[in-house]
Structures are given as C-alpha cells and as structure tokens.
Simulated assay, not measured.
Amino acid sequence: MLIDYHTHHARCGHAEGNLEDYVKRGIEIGLSQLGLSDHMPLIHVDPATYLPGMAMPMEEMPFYVEEALELKDKYKGQIDLRVGLECDYIEGYEDQIASIIKQYPWDYVIGSVHFLGTWDVSDYRQLDGWNNRDVDEVYRQYYDAVQKAARTGLYDFLGHIDMIKRFGYKPSGDMTQLERQTLDIIQASDTAIELNASGLRHTANEMYPSPSMLEYACQIGVPITIGSDAHQPERLGENLNLALIELKKAGYSQIATFCSRERRLISF
C-alpha cells in the first residue's frame, strides 16, 4: 500500500494545481490512499497586511471541504481519498483552532509548527528573522511549541517535527535531549508523527524528522505516517519510496492511516 497524507493545492496561495489534479496524479502513480491537507487559514495575524500566499482564506474553507468530499465520492473505487487539514499550532489560540477543527468532518488533522509568534520560520521570505537571534534558543522555542501542540490533543499527527532545520541553521549545542523529550511527550499524548520527505529538496537535505529522531520514535512506540508535502501535482509521492526505506531502517513495520479521525496501523 502506497499512501501520501501531506499535500497542498492552489487555494493556499503558494502551491499549484487544483484538488482534482492531485487526485488524477495519485491514480496515475498508483497511490492507494491520498490525503488532501491544505493549510488552515491565518488566525493570529492579519491576512490583509501579512505576506501574501500564506494560507487559504477563511471564506474558502467550506468550498475546500465540499470539493474534497465530492472528489472522494467521484473517484471512489479508483483511489481512497482522505480529507484533512494542516492546522497550525499557535500558542494562545487553542480555542479558535479547536473551533475550526470541529466545524468539518475531517479524516485527520495535522498539527504543524510554522510560526514562532508572528515569524513564520518555514518561509524563505522571512530568513531575516534569524538575524541577531541565538540559534539554540530558536530551536528550544520551536520544540517547546511542538510539545505544546502535542499536549493539546487537537491533532491526529504532528507534521515535520524538526522542520526548524529547513534552511540549514544549526544549533551549536546538542539537541538530542530536547528532541527525545519532545518525542516522549508526543508518545504520552498518543499522537502520531509523519515522516515528511520534503526535507530532501530543502537546504536541510534530510527528511523530517532526522534518522536519529526517527529511530528513537520507533523505540518508544510513536506511530508514524508518511507524506511528500507536495505543492505541485507532479511532486505527489516524491521520495516516499526512500521514506519507506528510512522507516524500515529505523525499525518501523507499520504505517498509520486515518479515517474519520480514527487511526489504523497497516503493515508495509
């Protein structure tokens, strides 16, 4: 079984292709399950004054879900579509996030940390945010946010949990203890994580999470799924063959799938 649970499309403003383009591509490459998981609308910054193309507008949410559900029915028997949302964790906005999640019939919700305050650490246009900052402290802030996201219980799995390494800024200190503490909290919260293959095309040149984190996650029993984080239809499934190899190396033999927010483990 080949699955891809992390994808984006044109509604988010920084991806290409419509939902049906991804569905057709998924059928073409032989996906068994395709997860549609576009970005939650911005809630803690003003979309009108923030940088453009960060996430889908709030008014597009119902149309996104409606279209995804229609495609799920249209292509039934050809590909198993799962309707999801990549839902930012923003400290202090937990109630608003929960409200958005509860409005729609998701198959799964990804909890991702992109923002530290109003700084999107995943945006190449905001690299000046690293200026005059202590890299080690940024890493500590990032993992603190990931830990808090896990503790909320709002999410089915956490996305790219060490994405802070994306642009190649490396801490001077050893982060192993902090990484393991984060994974311990994720395990205790009964939340899964993803192996996100997109890091191979970023400056980090490494999947999210790193092999050492992946191995520890397996040791302590953290469930895992996989995703390409495709922002173009042609990138759907990209490097997921390598992701499966990494999972086997780390000791995993099962992948988490989700339907109506219930987790099921399947062998691979």
Rank of each mutant, 00 (worst) to 15 (best):
E94G: 07
L247H: 05
S212D: 03
Y143K: 12
K74E: 13
E137G: 01
G237L: 02
Y139W: 15
M175F: 10
P52R: 04
Q103K: 12
S260K: 05
L242V: 09
S122H: 11
R235T: 10
L236I: 14
R82S: 06
A48W: 08
D184P: 08
S122K: 05
F167N: 13
I245G: 00
L247M: 13
F63V: 00
C12I: 11
I101D: 09
I29P: 01
E137C: 00
T225I: 12
I185Y: 06
R133A: 02
M56V: 02
P47E: 05
G227R: 03
D21T: 13
E91D: 02
L240G: 14
I164Q: 03
E91I: 03
D229R: 07
P171N: 01
E20T: 01
D80E: 15
V222E: 13
F167E: 09
I79R: 00
A256L: 10
P105R: 11
I97H: 03
G53K: 12
R125H: 15
P171E: 04
C12P: 00
I224A: 06
S122V: 13
E215Y: 09
M213I: 10
H14C: 13
Y5V: 00
A243Y: 00
S172R: 08
M61Q: 06
D107H: 12
S189R: 15
T7Y: 02
D184Y: 10
V222A: 08
L31V: 06
G199A: 08
G199S: 14
R140Y: 02
P57F: 08
N239P: 00
G92R: 10
F63P: 01
